[in-house]
Design a protein around this nucleic acid. Structure first.
Length: 353
DNA sequence: AAGGCGGGGGC
DNA sequence: GCCCCAGCCTT
């Protein structure tokens, strides 16, 4: 036996963090927490969980929310399709499922935004269905314990780990066991520098014997980073400015920002800024926003009032500055607004730098 | 099967 | 500053 279930569960009961979604069987609250926790650390997700529970205590209340409201609460958390899918699913459950969550893995899987991991999490935590969760923590723990070098981002790897996870699952206590193996991965069997000397499972950890801990799990994907070049145009008239909503299948979908020009390279970006020189009241220094797979080099320029022409464009809103906070904006935009304190305090008389 | 989607933390 | 993390959807 490669995994001592009782040892793992005992470790969990002693070391587990006190988290609000672990004190409930309410599928709505568990669903919300699991969506937030996708690609998000507990510490970062906690305040968002409380905000959502306060704003939408039931799935019905969420179903009646509008998308801007939800995105506003989600602002800063990233992967915004999670929020849009959550709203869509709340409405589907409210209208087509009589307001009640499906109670098993296969039916949960049909819902938008709920994949294999989340379906297993809700089914086991809420309804004690004996189905194993396989998240990044589980991949790491199992690949080390059994010293498996199959890449976790390949089709065969996913199948193999899913099979193994179901094998080792405690079918009598699937809820506690699933929580335990993920918490163990998050707190003890960590990606870097796991504390193997004080590990309750180190007696049966094959990877430890073979000295391959730091090489597990194996992934085949490489990180490619591309550069993008943005120029945001800030128009001011009285105490209003203009913003627009991002559409299309790109980053920050559904969020608001100033009217934007995007360029293929730094030269075209700079040429554009120079071409605006006569109309420009101020140009920020370059701001580089770094994400996993892209870095966005950005300038903010204040332009004289061509605002009327700009506002005529479809989708551009004229918004009082003191109401900007009502709109969900991208971090890049949010940071800029924060940094400049208030748009009206911005230096108007500087030239392009 | 491969690519896109964010922001935070470690070093 | 650079690298790592990782579930779901779309193509």
């Amino acid at each position: 036996m490669g995994l001592n279930r009782q040892e793992l569960i005992s470790w969990y009961l002693i070391n587990k963090r006190d988290l609000p979604w672990r004190k409930t069987k309410n599928p709505y609250k568990i669903w919300l927490s699991e969506i937030i926790l996708q690609q998000t650390r507990v510490q970062q997700g906690l305040p968002y969980y409380w905000k959502f529970i306060a704003a939408y205590p039931t799935i019905q209340s969420l179903a009646f929310a509008n998308e801007d409201e939800v995105l506003n609460l989600w602002q800063g958390l990233g992967y915004y399709s999670r929020a849009r899918n959550m709203l869509m699913t709340a409405r589907v459950i409210n209208e087509q499922y009589d307001g009640c969550f499906p109670t098993n893995y296969n039916d949960l899987l049909k819902l938008k935004g709920i994949g294999e991991y989340t379906a297993a999490a809700i089914a086991s935590f809420s309804f004690k269905e004996p189905v194993a969760v396989v998240d990044g923590n589980v991949y790491r723990v199992l690949s080390r314990l059994f010293d498996i070098d199959t890449p976790i981002d390949s089709g065969t790897g996913k199948k193999a780990f899913r099979f193994l996870a179901d094998e080792v699952l405690d079918k009598v206590n699937p809820d506690t066991f699933n929580q335990a193996i993920m918490e163990f991965g998050a707190l003890h069997c960590t990606p870097q520098k796991p504390d193997c000397n004080n590990c309750v499972l180190n007696g049966t950890c094959l990877s430890r014997v073979n000295g391959t801990i730091s090489q597990r799990p194996v992934k085949k994907k490489k990180n490619a980073s591309k550069q993008r070049f943005f120029v945001y145009k800030v128009f001011l008239e009285d105490d209003k400015t203009t913003i627009q909503k991002r559409e299309g299948k790109d980053i920050w979908q559904g969020l608001y920002e100033f009217p934007l020009e995007e360029f293929d390279d730094a030269k075209k970006q700079m040429d554009y800024i120079q071409s605006c020189k006569g109309k420009t009241l101020y140009c920020s220094s370059e701001i580089t926003h770094i994400l996993s797979h892209q870095r966005i080099k950005t300038f903010f320029i204040y332009l004289k009032s061509e605002k009327k022409k700009e506002a005529l464009k479809q989708g551009v809103l004229s918004v009082p500055i003191n109401e900007l906070h009502r709109y969900p904006v991208s971090v890049l935009t949010e940071n800029f607004l924060k940094k400049t304190k208030s748009l009206t305090f911005f230096p108007f008389d500087q030239n392009v730098t």
